[in-house]
Amino acid sequence: PRGDIVLKAFDQYFKGRPKVDKIILRHIADPDVAVAAFDAGDLDMVQIPSPEVLERYLQDPNVEVSMTSGLNLNYIVLNNKMPPFDDIRVRRAICHAIDKEALFATILKGIGVDLTGPVPESANFYESDVTTYPYDPEKAKQLLAVAGYPNGFNTTLYTYVSRISVDVCVAIQDQLKKVGINVDLKVLEISAWADVVVTGTAPMVFMRITRPPDPDEFLTPVVLSTSDPQWNFGHYSNAAVDALVEAGAREVDPEKRSQIYSWVQKIVTWDVPNVWLFSDVVATAYRPYIKGFKEDPFWNTLINEEVYIER
């Protein structure tokens, strides 16, 4: 078992001595146990693990909640080398067949925000002006018919054991069925899931990654062709995207990097190699006597020099 980590205020900190004398970081592996400890008054802060807990704390006058969009991608990898996913019309049809608003309303319930492309909104140089694919099942059927699949097709989607990922994939399975795409959903333990994913032969894979805020941290593994098959499991390849991603990694001027990454996101969302679903919302519950706390998208429960106690 892991012990507590005790942090003490450093008098010579360059921004001035912290306002909190001591912080105890307590590792509790089971999130339900952590929530119970917070409810019992044994913890001053706790990370919120589920929509149900978030909803309860938002209604509790004795609890403060800080939330922000996380630095992560939840998406479905489409195998761009495998029919029918090698046809952009099929990939776009799948996007139009998925009702993300329904996922937010019925499953995620406040712990997910819309993901429009390969860079989450909390990352640096996020571009919002990209091609999106609103829920439109009739358009999905039309695209499938034009692509040569008027009656749809059968395929397989792999995911790992996790309540959110499984619930989301079951909902997507039902939504795709409405446009004629029959999905055989395979739910595997994480190690077995990884064994399948790394082969690069799966038709569809539910994927989640968390990275630091620089866009290169997302783009290099997810869309760079030379990352196939280490991370680019769908075998997406676009020479223009490769050149731009590599240029962005070398560039030091922020304005030039912004332009480069804007183009990358525009091209990738047009090509739609994957189905971009959502980013997790990271949220922390804490007691009202804790002041100055603000959720950080990467570090989550970060106690900085602005936090103080007022009882």
Rank of each mutant, 00 (worst) to 15 (best):
Pro1Thr: 11
Asp4Glu: 05
Lys8Asn: 13
Arg17Thr: 14
Lys22Thr: 09
Arg26Tyr: 00
Asp30Thr: 14
Pro31Trp: 14
Val33Met: 10
Ala40Tyr: 00
Met45Ile: 14
Gln47Ala: 10
Pro49Glu: 03
Pro49Lys: 11
Ser50Lys: 05
Val53Asp: 02
Tyr57Trp: 10
Gln59Ser: 08
Ser66Asp: 00
Met67His: 02
Asn74Thr: 02
Ile76Glu: 04
Ile76Tyr: 06
Val77Ala: 08
Lys81Glu: 01
Phe85His: 02
Arg89Asp: 00
Ala93Glu: 00
Lys109Cys: 11
Lys109Asp: 07
Val113Glu: 01
Asp114Met: 15
Leu115Lys: 06
Asn124Met: 15
Glu127His: 11
Asp129Ala: 15
Thr132Asn: 09
Gly148Phe: 13
Tyr149Thr: 03
Asn151Tyr: 02
Phe153Lys: 09
Leu157Phe: 06
Tyr158Gln: 12
Thr159Trp: 08
Tyr160Gln: 12
Val161Leu: 15
Ser165Glu: 02
Val166Thr: 07
Val168Lys: 01
Gln175Lys: 05
Lys177Glu: 00
Leu185Met: 11
Leu185His: 03
Val187Asn: 09
Glu189Arg: 12
Ser191Val: 08
Ser191Met: 10
Ser191Lys: 14
Val196Trp: 09
Pro203Asp: 08
Phe206Cys: 05
Phe206Asn: 02
Met207Ile: 07
Pro213Glu: 00
Phe218Asn: 12
Leu219His: 05
Leu224Ser: 09
Thr226Trp: 00
Gly234Arg: 09
Ala239Phe: 05
Ala239Met: 06
Ala243Thr: 14
Val245Ile: 12
Ala249Ile: 15
Ala249Glu: 06
Asp253Cys: 13
Val264Thr: 01
Lys266Pro: 00
Ile267Tyr: 09
Trp270Asp: 15
Asp271Glu: 11
Ala283Ile: 06
Ala285Arg: 07
Lys291Val: 06
Asp296Met: 13
Asn300Ser: 08
Glu305Gln: 14
Val307Thr: 10
Ile309Asn: 09
